[in-house]
Each structure stands twice: as C-alpha cells, then as structure tokens.
Simulated assay, not measured.
Amino acid sequence: MDAQSTAPPATDAASYLDLAITLALNNWPALTLAVQSNWGGPTSADKRAWLCGAISEMLNERAETDAEDLEDVLVQVMNDEFDVVVDDESAGNVADLIMELKDQTVRGEFGAIQEMWHVWQQKSAQRSAAADMFKQVESKDEDQETDESEDEGSDVEMGDAPAVERAPRERVEPEIDDDGFTKVVSKKKR
C-alpha cells in the first residue's frame, strides 16, 4: 500500500497493521532520504513498497518476531538494497514503533494509526501546496528570463577595466654568516 494514496484508512486489524507499517516506513527519515535520492536505483520507491509488504508478511507468518528481529531486517535491507549503513538507532525506533502499533491492532485499538494517517494526509497536502507554489515561482522566473533575454540585443558599452598596478616585490638578498654559510629564512619571516 502506498502511503501517498488518498484512500480512506483501513477497516480491519490486518489492514490497519499494513497501514501502520507503511506509515512508519514512509516517515523514517533514513529510508525517505534513500528513496528520494535513488540510492536504491531507479526502483527505490518500489523497494520501499516491497519492504512494507515483506514486513507485513513476516509479522503475520512468524508470531515470534520481535522488535530486534525487525530492526535486523530493516538494517539489512537498508544496507543491501540502498547501500546505507544505519547506525543512528533509528531502525530500532522504527521497529519498536511498528511492534507497538501491531500490539495495538491486536487489541483492536486503531486510534494511534488513525492519527498517524491524519498527520500524513496533512503533510501530503502541505507538500502538494509547496510543490504548486514552487512551480508558480519557477514559471515566473522563466517569464522574467524571457523578458531579460529580449533586452539582450541592446548591449551597453562598458569600456575597459582600469589596470591594477602592483608594487614590485623586493628581492631579499641571502644572509651569509661568519663561516660562509647561507642562512635559510622561511618565506613567512622575509
């Protein structure tokens, strides 16, 4: 399931768990950066979607799965699929969150997941509005560049820049000591 879809949230415990996994992974900064930067190649977004499904399957098929197992999977996938070494404990935090949300779905408590969904929808709307604003600004910049390029035909004669004169460097004569040796002086002390 893609967290960016505008479909309503889940209706049963399994669907809520899938939604929770998807939201947790889509909110994980390390994975988000890896996907946005295409560190997993051009199919980075597909790899994230695959990871969501793989975690859901793992939690449904192996009841003994705990947060440590899940953290190991997250770290391994980030390393193997995205060439990212996660050493900031964020994989453990994501694993803990997913396991807590799993426990809530088992108890029939869906409020936290619904809240996460609501926050995700708000952020998506803000990102969309910001992208639209960026496009508007970008098109205005292009219009200004077009206006400026029309003015390029009338060049203004600037003249020659004034010459900059440097004072000639003084040549430092080597010092010769009483024994006839030349004293070496660093450039800084000259």
Rank of each mutant, 00 (worst) to 15 (best):
A130H: 08
V84S: 11
C52I: 11
G41K: 00
A45S: 09
L17S: 03
D72R: 03
T32V: 14
A131L: 10
M99F: 01
V73H: 08
V77C: 09
N27H: 06
M116W: 02
R127F: 13
F110H: 03
K102D: 04
V94K: 02
G53N: 04
M116D: 05
V119P: 15
V35G: 04
V85N: 13
A131H: 04
P9K: 10
A10V: 03
A20M: 04
C52D: 10
L23H: 01
G41C: 03
W117K: 10
L31N: 02
R48Y: 07
L33D: 14
G92Y: 04
T32G: 13
A112D: 12
N27C: 11
A131C: 11
W117D: 14
V77I: 11
P29N: 01
L70C: 04
A10T: 01
D72W: 07
D96N: 07
S15N: 07
L25Y: 03
S37L: 13
V85R: 09
G92N: 06
L17E: 00
E81T: 07
T105F: 00
T11D: 11
K135S: 15
E89W: 09
V119W: 12
R62I: 14
I98L: 05
L51N: 01
A34W: 00
D69R: 02
S37Q: 08
L23I: 02
K135Y: 15
T22N: 06
Q122A: 14
C52T: 07
A30S: 12
D80G: 11
A20W: 00
A14P: 10
V106E: 06
G111H: 10
D103M: 05
K135H: 14
S37G: 10
G41A: 01
R62D: 14
A30N: 11
E68S: 12
S15I: 08
I113K: 02
K102W: 00
A34V: 02
D83Y: 10
G40W: 01
D87Y: 09
L101K: 00
D80H: 06
N93L: 15
I55Q: 03
S90L: 08
A14I: 08
A30I: 10
E100M: 06
A125Q: 07
D66H: 02
L97N: 05
L19Q: 07
I55V: 08
S37V: 09
N27Q: 05
R107W: 09
V119I: 15
L23G: 01
A10I: 04
V35W: 01
T22L: 13
A10L: 08
I113N: 02
T22W: 04
P9C: 15
V75C: 11
D96Y: 06
I98S: 01
I55H: 02
A30P: 13
A129H: 08
D12K: 01
A34Q: 01
S90P: 11
K123V: 13
F134C: 15
L19N: 06
N27W: 05
N93P: 15
A14D: 08
D103Q: 04
E115P: 15
T11L: 12
L97S: 06
G108E: 00
V77P: 09
G108D: 00
A112H: 08
I21R: 00
V75Q: 06
E64Q: 07
D12M: 09
L74N: 06
R127G: 12
R127Q: 12
E64W: 08
L19H: 07
M133G: 14
A54C: 14
D103T: 02
T32I: 14
L59G: 05
V106D: 05
M99C: 04
D87I: 13
V84C: 13
E109R: 04
L59R: 01
N79Y: 14
